[in-house]
Design a protein around this nucleic acid. Structure first.
Lengths: 326, 326
DNA sequence: CACATTAATACTCATACTGAGCATTACTGA
DNA sequence: TCAGTAATGCTCAGTATGAGTATTAATGTG
């Protein structure tokens, strides 16, 4: 009986074996009530994410990541979660023919203090510098004025079947017709823009093809495929805050309900109904009063609250959808 | 200004650079209304998941995976999604000191036909052979009779603080006290059992320590850390069916509502309320009638239905929780 | 110092969604 | 014809949600 290949290094490959390189990269996020932030470092003249190669002495991948981040930015990470492993050839200029794959294992990390950081040039940046179309807090983002017609042109540029397919995908991710904006579909939107050639990263060697000089979607680009990683992280975070109390990883020890709401709004990029937001938070027992009162509200002073850890044990996870029996 | 390490291979490391090996592994799932299945192959005398090393000629990771699976099992995968990258040293016996990391990028794949498969010895197996405590369809699983006291003993074996911490975690994942079973927490439960030394995989070199001969939790074990990967996949799938119509990747072209319900039950491991399940499915417009009728129901014949693709465009994603404004 | 401003808080209300059941209908097999 | 097994229809009460209106407590201003 032939046996399946195992995890051991293959000995008798036909092709010459080219070892892959493995990078660990971190999307480190923080937030104020006004601004969602990501830590950016300088990579090859561009902004990028803190990252470093996986080394044999790293006991776990996560520890490797923490080590790199500490070294590069002086930050000690709290909440860390693996995001995705990127490694397709032909997606970044780091892919040199005749070498192995350049893998990048991306992590999402949430930190509280927004103190800038250390060893390499690093700075906190507003997410929406990179993905301006994702911020709907002040209404429909300006960026869409360029994006919508450009995507439509892209859809029209294909054959009939292709066109319908593309239009459907555009509608699904951007919801131009129906007006349905799904905050979590950040990656899908970015990928669509990438495929449509609307982000600079799509042209690593070649220039934008065609005679009609194409305009990119607004938004600063990043090194390698870091903007894609950022989009993945934002989408994940936006989804997660809905069913796990992760926002509190970004909040100070005590805060007002409006602070909390504003922060959630900053992350999700949409405005929320104030009274109902409070009702939801309170009913779920997510917070408890500290007894103190904040004066700096501008209006009536607000109670300060803190996260109630107990909910973790109490509720399974808000947002389960199956109609249970018994 | 010092510049951050980039994705290029490091040239001047203090340590000798030991290239990691990278495996692609697949959790391939199928389901009948009675049984959720996973495709298992033989790995080192044990059952394991189909997998193979990433090779430089694979254009994308996913294509590499598909190639391996096709070669080993003759299956052509449809729906494929990346799960997680495992690579901690000291988790599997594949970690040999003096070598690089043994990474394993795991994928979840869903297929329709349950026809067994090809080149290597491969067979469809019931999930619950490996994780019997996850199946609550016939009431509280027997397996918990062994697990509950063992976990409690484990909690008690620590100091006071450790004990509380462990008890809380046990409650959170298994919900013995409150009776709250959260179907998606499959990985958390497996990891807990692993840490408590209740699964065989936890002892790759050493024998179970201590004089009191420990009993393992029921359930067949798998090669390397494949059972962990399986747990990850099940958890992901259980979560996903609640907000994306992925069950249909596992269903035949047409089916009855009871078939659908039974399949969902098989995957999630719990029983559902029939009338309400139907109401939910129909209200969401997830299916449409084919016009045909199935006779083999045993009772009154049932309408056959098929998946309505249009919902993908219509609804953003059932299960959004933010209180929107306007 | 009364008043406009700015928020925090309290409530209300109609509608939608859910969990549990009861009732009826349509086949098959003995 | 009756028992067994499901498919389908419908009801009902309890919750949750989306949208507002109303009230309260500070601050800064002429």
């Amino acid at each position: 009986m032939p046996s399946a290949p195992t995890t051991r290094r293959p000995k008798t490959l036909k092709q010459r074996y080219l070892a892959p390189t493995v990078d660990l990269s971190a999307v480190i996020m923080a937030a104020t009530p006004d601004e969602p932030r990501v830590l950016a470092v300088r990579v090859d003249q561009l902004e990028g994410l803190p990252s470093g190669p996986l080394q044999s002495q790293h006991r776990t991948l996560e520890m490797g990541l923490r080590t790199w981040v500490a070294e590069q930015t002086q930050l000690t990470l709290g909440y860390v979660e693996q995001l995705y492993t990127f490694g397709d050839r032909d997606r970044t200029e780091a892919d040199v023919p005749g070498t192995g794959h350049a893998l990048s294992i991306a992590y999402l990390a949430l930190v509280r203090e927004a103190r800038p950081a250390g060893l390499v040039h690093a700075a906190w940046r507003n997410w929406y510098n990179y993905l301006p179309w994702e911020d709907w807090r002040e209404g429909r983002p300006q960026a869409l004025k360029v994006i919508e017609p450009a995507l439509e042109a892209w859809a029209r540029s294909g054959g009939k079947a292709l066109r319908t397919f593309r239009e459907e995908r555009i509608e699904l991710t951007f919801g131009f017709e129906s007006g349905t904006w799904t905050d979590e579909r950040v990656l899908e939107r970015y990928e669509l823009l990438f495929e449509a050639g609307l982000v600079a990263e799509a042209f690593r060697d070649a220039q934008p093809s065609g005679s009609a000089k194409m305009r990119f979607a607004p938004g600063q680009w990043m090194a390698l495929d870091h903007r894609r990683i950022l989009a993945t992280a934002i989408g994940r975070l936006r989804g997660k805050i809905k069913y796990r109390p992760v926002i509190f990883e970004l909040m100070p020890a005590s805060f007002t309900l409006l602070d909390l709401q504003k922060t959630v709004e900053a992350l999700s990029g949409v405005r929320l109904h104030k009274q109902n937001f409070r009702r939801l938070i309170e009913m779920q027992g997510l917070v408890e009063e500290t007894g103190e009162i904040s004066a700096e509200t501008g209006g009536r002073p607000a109670r300060l609250v803190r996260f109630r850890r107990e909910v973790l044990v109490e509720r399974p996870a808000p947002g389960v959808r199956l109609p249970r029996l018994r």
